[in-house]
């Protein structure tokens, strides 16, 4: 229902709801490291100033894995804007990720 309008090039729309993202990683594994780098880059590029990104190392609190129904890692959780979505992987598939986040790939110019 709540279709997010595509973000216009070069003008990040601050009027839309801020993105709340959470990335679960497993220690300093190659996948985790890559995922952190990739998501940071995407956020900086497409959501600059309009996002909060929390990175959680599941190894630090193992009970989280069960509470959060974690299975495959790394896992990116988009808490806001609605609907909640989950992405697994090292976030290297940028196009898929952007689509899933409701962002337009053309926006990077």
């Amino acid at each position: 229902m709540n279709e997010i309008p595509p973000v216009l090039p070069d003008t990040p729309d601050h009027s839309i709801e801020p993105y709340v993202l959470r990335l679960y990683v497993a220690g300093a594994s190659p996948n985790s490291t890559r995922a952190i780098v990739n998501i940071r880059e995407i956020c900086e590029r497409y959501l600059k100033g309009n996002y909060s990104l929390q990175i959680i190392d599941v190894y630090q609190d193992k009970s989280l894995a069960s509470q959060q129904q974690l299975l495959a890692l790394p896992l990116l959780l988009k808490i806001s804007p609605y609907p909640e979505r989950k992405f697994i992987g090292d976030m290297s598939d940028t196009a898929k990720l952007l689509h899933g986040l409701g962002l337009s790939p053309e926006s990077n110019g």
Binding site: Y24, N38, A65, L70, L76, F87, G100
Partner: peptide
């Protein structure tokens, strides 16, 4: 008892991953 919830439509695969989460979970339990 640990119920592992797997729903395909809730998850998108965006690159390399592994089941470390499951391992952590099992190890913890």
């Amino acid at each position: 008892i640990d119920h592992v919830h797997v729903e395909r439509h809730e998850i998108e695969e965006t690159g390399e991953y592994n089941l470390e989460g499951l391992f952590i979970r099992l190890g913890y339990a």
